[in-house]
Amino acid sequence: MRIVPAVSDEELAGRVAAGDLAAFASLYDQYAPRVFAWAAHLLGRDEAEDATQEILLRLWDRADRYDARRGPFAPWFYAVARHELIARARNRTREVRVVATDEIERLLFDRASSADTEAAAIARVAGDELIRALRTLPVQQRRVLVLAYFGGLSQSEIARGTSTPLGTVKKRTRLALAKLREALRGSAGAGAG
């Protein structure tokens, strides 16, 4: 049996920069479902198509700006996607963004805690370690991270949107990031050992 090595995202991005449409299709297949799901929850299904198209075409246009020597492709691409989605979400009220992001949080963590087949499917994805690490956080700490990441809410907006003192939100954010880093370091160490 001949084993064909998988092409890395970084290599695909390099090919996209050179105008390789097949490489672009590969990255689309991998990343468009993620961007679309995020956009659909945050902006609604109607705008999700337009936002996904815009973000993927931005990848096509700007792939030459990605430098694999400076880091993996995924964080670079998600930064592009997040900035576009959050810019669009700013047209929504804070309350709408909080509700949409809370729904994302329920999907990610409530279902994962049940023993159904969907949870098993989630456990197989690459974000499994991250989900597990986030589930170790107190719910309110985890919530501020999800609101900030998916909804693009500032700490002030989270404070107002969740009727929580700003100082508390800042403290939860700081603790959540520290614990998450620690948990991910631990799981990386366990994985290496």
């Binding site: 997040r82 999907l107 990610l108 974000g127």
Partner: peptide, 27 residues
């Protein structure tokens, strides 16, 4: 962090993949 910055956000970059796996919304 007033708004999540790219460095902190990188910690959470596995979430969109997990969301796509559990969301009813597919392109």
């Amino acid at each position: 962090m007033e708004r999540v910055n790219d460095r902190d956000a990188e910690l959470l970059d596995g979430l969109p993949e997990a969301l796509a796996a559990s969301s009813p919304h597919a392109p």
